[in-house]
Each structure stands twice: as C-alpha cells, then as structure tokens.
Nucleic acid binder design. Sequence first.
RNA 1: GGGCGAGUGGCGGAAUAGGUAUACGCGCACGACUCAAAAUCGUGUUCCGAUAAGGAUUGAGGGUUCGAUUCCCUCCUCGCCCACCA
Length: 958
Amino acid sequence: MKRYSPKDIEPKWQKVWEESGIYKAAATNDRPKKYILEYFPYPSGAAMHVGHVRNYTIGDAIARFNRMTGHNVLHPMGWDAFGLPAENYAIKNKVSPEVAIAENTKRFKQQLMQMGFSYDWSREINSSNPDYYRWTQWFFLLLHKKGLAYQQESLQWWCPFDKTVLANEQIEAGRCWRCGNEVEKKALKQWFFKITDYADRLLADLDNLNWSESIKSMQRNWIGKSRGAEINFTIEGRRNKLKVFTTRPDTLPGVTFMVIAPEHPLAEKIASDQHRHQVQTYVKAAQAATDIFREKTDREKTGVFTGAFAVNPINGNKIPIWIADYVLSGYGTGAIMAVPAHDERDYEFAIKFNLPVKYVVEPVTGEVQGDEVEKEAIVAIVRNPKTNQVLMLDWGPRQERFGGILFVGGGLEPGEDEVEGAKREVIEETGYDNLKFVKKAPYLVHSYYFSNVKNKNYYAKMRGILFELDDEHQTKTSLDDGEKNKFTLKWIGTDKASELVDDEGHKQILNCLVSPGVVSGEGIMTDSGKYNGLSSGECREKILADLEAKHQGKEVINYKMRDWLISRQRYWGAPIPIIHCNNDGAVPVPEDQLPVKLPVVESIEPSGDGRSPLANVPDFVNTTCPKCGGPATRETDTMDGFACSSWYFLRFADSKNKHAPFDKDKIDYWLPVDDYIGGAEHAVMHLLYARFWTKVMKDEGLIDFSEPFQTLRNQGMILAPDGNKMSKSKGNTIEPDGLIQQGYGADSIRIMELFIGPWNQAASWSVEGLGGAYRFLQRTWTLVQEYNGTEGGDEESEELKHIMHKTIKKVSEDMLELSFNTSIAALMECVNQLYRIKAQDGYRAVEWQWSLECLLKLLAPFTPHIAEELWQELGNDESIHLSQWPAFDDKYVVKEEVNIAVQVNGKVRAEIEVVFGAHQDEVLALAKQEDKLKPYLKGKQIERVIYVPDKLLSLVIN
RNA sequence: GGGCGAGUGGCGGAAUAGGUAUACGCGCACGACUCAAAAUCGUGUUCCGAUAAGGAUUGAGGGUUCGAUUCCCUCCUCGCCCACCA
C-alpha cells in the first residue's frame, strides 16, 4: 500500500495540469461564464505568508467549484508591479526595479504554483510592462481629453522619506501609508483626476452592490456627502464677504462668533491694526505645527481674535471673527459660523475664550401620548452646598410612566413667577423653606410626562430652577392626605443623581443646571425672533428661503472627497504622457507615440527637490511639441500605482491585445467580475478608483456596465499563532514553503486555511490544527488505498447511499454560501462514517467505488492534488477537475426512521423513534406509552400539543 | 466622539424564516498495537453531581413564547474602520 506523500504527488500534478492547460478560460459561449478574481498582488521583497495564501485559497475553491458545476471560468493572475513598495525594495537592495520585480514575481509565482491554484497563466499581466502601461497612459489621455485630468499648483501632502507627494487616501493619521513617516505640506504643481465629478454616482451606485456593509459605509464616509448651506456674512467696514458652510442653517440665530482657518485668505487681511501682530504670530505658529499635532482632537482649543466683526444676515447682530486651527482650510469654505450652544467644538472654544452661548433649539424629550394638556411647569433642583447633594423625591419603583426618582416639579399658577412658583412647590412638597435662588436653566425643555399625582398627561414647557439651601430648616408640608406617604425625600450626590433620575426631561435639566453644555440634535426654535416655535427642520427651510431671497446664502452639497492626486515624483511608475511646450502648454502625447517608455537611469533615488529622477535624463526630457514642432519638455512625474490597478481586471479578458486595451466583445462576455476577493485594506483606494475609471469608460462607450465588481468578498485576516498581525518586522510570519517542506503539503494548508473558521472572519494560525488537516487527508488516502486492494463486492448498502447523498447535499449547499468550514466538517464526518462502515462490513458494498469517487469530487475544490491522485488510482483517466459535480437525490437523504424530541413544559424529557413523516396522532400515542414520560404525564391534563414534523413534540400540561 | 461587526466548552468554531445547544477539528484522558516511543486505530471529553437520579449553561439582566444562541429592550466587554468634516 502506498504511503500518502504530498511531496511526491503535488509537484507531479502541478506539472501535468500546466502542460495540459486544463485551467485555461475557454473562448466559448456554451456555458455560463464566471469571472473569479483575487486582488493581484504587488510582488514586494517579503514572500507570501499563510495570510496571503488564504485569499487565493478562497478564490481557487470558488473557481474550481464553478468549473465543476458547468461554468466557463476565468480565473487569472498578474502582478501589480509599479509603485513604491517595489521601488523602495529595489533601492534598499541596490538593484534595478526591473530586476527586483523579475525576481520577486518569480518567487511569488513559484509560491502560487506550489499551492496548486488553478490560474489561467496564459493571461498573466505585469503592470510595469510597456505592453501594459502603454494602455494605462492611453487611459490617462482619455481622462485628459474628457477634462478629467488637470494640473494645479497647491499645497500637497509630501512624504519626506519616500520623497513624493501622496493622495489624501494615502495619508493615515498624518503618516505615509507606506513608510509610516510623518508627512508635510509642500506647494507643487500636480496632476489630478477629477473623481469629485463622479462623487454622486459613486455614492448612489453603492446601494445595489453586493458588498459588505462595512466597506460600503467606509466609501460613503469617504465621499462624505452632506447637505447644507453656504451663507455670506458681510464684514463690517469691508467689501469682502465671509462665506461659511453649515449643515445647520437653522442655528443661524444662535451664532455668537465666527471662526476662520489660519490658512484662510482673509485671515491676515481683516485683522485690525490692534490685533494684527497677534494674528500673524498665530498663523505662523499654525503653519509651523506638524499635521500630526494639528489633527489631534484631544488638545485644547487655541485661537485669536482678529478685531473684525461680521454681521448676522437675519438679525443684524455684530459677531466677532476669530481665527482658530480647529477649523480646517480644506473642508467647506475654511470658515464657520460658530454656534456654541449647539456644537461641541464651538462650545469648547466659547468656554475657553469666554464667548457668549445662546440657546436657540430646545430639545424635545419623552413620548407623545396623544391626550396631553399643555401646561407651564417648573422643575426645582435644591442643592445642599455643604454636602453637594441634591434633593430628590422617591415615588417608589418606576413602572411604565409612574413612580421613580424625580426632582420637585409642578405646574405654575396663572401669571405666577417661575422662581416663586418653584419655591412654593419645594416648600409644599418638602418643607425646606430657606432657599436661595441660584439660576434658571438657560433653555426650556418640552417633555411629555405623566403626573405622579394627578392622572393626566401634560405637554409641558418646563423651566429648570436651581436653589441652594441656606440652612436645613423644614416647615410642615402642606400635602393633603392623598399625597402624603406617596414619596420619600432623598438627598443624593450630584454625580449619582444623574444616573438615578427616572425622567429624561429631569435629567436634562439637571445636566443643564449643574453642568450646562451642548444641546445637539433637532428641536423647537426659541429666542430666534420670527422663527420661534418652528421645528428646527422647518426653520432650516425658512431661513434658507429668506437668505436666498436676499442673495446672502444658498443650499449647497458638500463632499469630503477631494480630487485624486496622481503625480508621483518617483521613477517606478508609468510616465505621465504629457509634453510641456512654451507655446502650447501641456500637450498630450499623440496616441501613436505610446508608450512613453521609462528611460534607463543611473540612479532611481528620488532627488528630494520635488522633482522625479526622470528630470535628470536629458534624452527623455527634451523633445519636440506635437502641436507646433518647437522644442518642448516631457512631464517627468509618473503616475500613482493605483492608476495601473484601476483597470487591470479588464485587461485579463484580453491580456495580449496589441491594438487596444481590450476588445469590447471579450469585455462584454467576461465582465463584470462575478466574485472579487481580497482584504478590506483597499476599501477607499483601489476600490474607489476602479469604480471611477469604470464609470468614465462607460461614459465613453468603451464598456456597457458602470460597476466593475458585482460581488466583493473580504476575507478575514490570518493572525500569527500569538494573535498578532503577521509581519516581517515582528518575525512571526509563517510561509507555506516551510510547511510544504516539512511534509504537510499544499492540500493540508488549503484545508487549514478554510477550516480554521468562516472565510470572512479573522483567525489565528494553528500548527496543531494543520496536523489535524493532514490526518484527515491521510485517512482519506488510506480508505481509498485499502479499497483498491480489495475485490469489492455486490451487496447493496442503503446506509452508504444515505451517507453520500447527505454529504453531497450538505457540501453543495454550503459551497453556494461559501461556508467552506462547514463543508469540510461534513467531509470529515463523511470519512468518519465510511471508516465505521468499513469496520462493520468491509468493502463488500457495491456502492464503494461510486462513494469514494463522490467523496473525491467534493474534496477537489479544496485539495486538488490528493483528489486527482486518488481519482486516477480509482481508474479514471480524465482529470477530476474537469468532471461533473455529483448530484444528490432527496429520497436517499431522508432516513426512514427519525428521532423525535418530546418536550414537557418546554423541557426535553425523552426521545422517541418514529417513521419519517409520521402524523402528530401517531407520535402522541407513542409518547404516551413512553416509560420516561409517564412520571411527567401521570395524573396531568395535556392542555396543548405542538408538533414539528420529524423534529419535535412539545406537550404543555397543567 | 461617530460607524460597522462580534461575544457559545480548555481552544478554533457549529447550529439563527424560533424547535433535541456544543456538529467538525485541536487539546486532553484512557485503551489497542509496540521492548519502548512516534505514527496509526478505538473510546471518552460543556459544567456541577458519584460512573446515578437530577440540575445548570450560549457576555449580564429583563421581555415576548409551549419553546430563545436565534426576536425585542437595557447594560457590559472586545475587534475593526473613521475622526476638530461645521
């Protein structure tokens, strides 16, 4: 009997498959197509570890399953070769990027090969190959032609380590996404793609994509659409207007100051002579501060007064203008109207600089009951300054809307002063009569509440009043007998009180009086002149209309997303195909002169002066203008690597095309991608850019769809056994090569990658678990080997049929849901069952050959090598991977006898065996005779019977 | 601070149009084989209880139901992403 040796069989079959080309996507229309794609890797210096391998294992299982279920499958692979990772690796190792890429792709390909993935290697692409980037440049020209590529001088993120600018998306918490160094701002003339033109479509089309909610919401947040208003404030004594963006124009009556960013063009201009020096100092300091520092949200607010005033367009109020760095120059207009009462940041600033806080939106609390009586009411909080406790009334346990722990509260008599009324209520209910008025709550609270005494619902306008106790003298309370004893008085610490209080309105009043703060959210307008009484939503519309009538404001939609900066001052990228001419400006390179090839240079090291190394190559730079023929210079910046990956999935459909990026017929057949598999790290970069390019191509008529990836699947990360992220620097990476060397084999690794847990959930790699996977394959191996050594037999086995049909059904259904871990569990269970039958009856049953063949087919998507080897040992000549997925028949799946659980009052008390499909009456009759149940049923009446066929009988007895 | 997701044995996890919780694997224990070990095969393994009867158990607490891991409410913990975005 042969031993299971992955080292022997795996390379053997890999060679056979490659030579016979069985994974080549056919140019046929006879089967439905499936395009299964995994993110193409960038071949960096570090080899692939088992975390990367999971991505490809998932894709391969899907691809293989689809092939066996009658699909024409495209499953390609290529290399995202341009870009910083490859270039930095090359610099570090003092080799040319071409050489580095050649070495690394070779290594990566060997790693993928040894895992037995079923790629169509005939379509392999490499984004740094001129045959490929020629078309990347072609797309640049298309974007340029459509006005979607433009050049602009602006302050840009600059990484001093990588010596290049970076796109917004490539900044992570003020640091470069590649090297982790702090970035700075630098003024440079740069190329941009106008992705903001597509913001609305990128947002709207997300709804119909079969992507995870988390990725969709990341993209939504990134696009950051918000509806609001632009409002023009006149500046006293100046002609300039101060334009602000706000999402809450309804709070305009509550504006108490304005804030502009230090970078705002008016910042220094509007400063009064008296304040100019301070302003200049502040602006300078802000510019000098690092972005990491400025982006810290937990630091204290800073700012200076400019000495200038703006005028509130709806009430003419004079508002001081401040400069502060908490206002960002890059968002909205770089200036805000500050409403400290209703915005936390403004509030913080107002407290720090002692600016007024004006409440204009009253919050609404409680639930509407429908039968409210409107009433003016007060809530009195009495504080004992000696103990810092507040007086509360305990009405007993809170039930529905009754009882609970509350403050003194009550209605006002007609015409009664709020403070007097509050005092009266406190004395009436508690007897404390030496009260000192401290303050009123700065706003009213509308609340629907139930009176504890008078059974009525009130729609109350509540005013909170704070008293302090002069002494603890108490007079007799004037409660009538009905009210007495309904509550007890309690003194409670102020911190505790906020937790204990049982009414949302009371709680807000407490917070407001003891620690006033920001009122966020919607509500009802107050202290706002003619807008009083409107809901904040209605007020928003009204104020917008008023402003528009006066041409002082308008509704606008604002986005967080910026245009995509694609210039890189680096060598290793596709040159931007533009020629700069003194006469004609930036002229696109004519299509027939593409590709603009990367020249060979002596040093690829970035110069650090903001220019790409290409600028030092005169032969490359100096050229003639395609328009006027005069002397001209080439653009020396290269394109962001993400440009290359924005269309590679299209190229796979027609990767060898010399005359066009692709042939439309082939795109029409293969695209869009049916299953796109990769990690979540690309959520706002690659996945957004690729969607953008796809929409541009659709608009140009190059393709007929506007979303490239119908279904996106984000695999869970494989963590190191220590629970940390695998990384070279931590030294905790596990590479498949070593495991294969140890003899586990690619098949065991593949099983482990999927069996470790749901494919989209993170999991820690386990060496012991891999041993289990190997044992399972070895058991399978042994089973087939032993069978092959027997004569077989001709007995029929219903049991064998049942096991196999059940397994086929389970695995088939789980595969469609990508539930790989449970598929594999079912296969393990199946093998265990086959062992049991073998031990009982040997290999006498006639179904053994068929059973084992089915088992191997079900295994084939996961463990292609062992499946192929044993398949052929069972006497098959054609590859198992071209065979048909087995079918199941429900009639063998169900068993004739089934166990039914019998519950008595919800507890399982017995299990009885009945024939499949038995009727309730039969089961009940059997249950009544069951010995185990007799003690429970004796002398009891069965009140109710619930029967779930073939599963459960539930008896309710009295 | 905001958004998304998740809490089940010693561990990874299974079971959610409500229906026998802990499948499968790891680990552990015992047995067979062996001079012995490894490998292999077999048995057991949620907890308490005595190998019994019985009871408890899906982060905590409450609710709906004959019946809740699954649905609803309150809270706690962890992970990921975003974050002074007006």
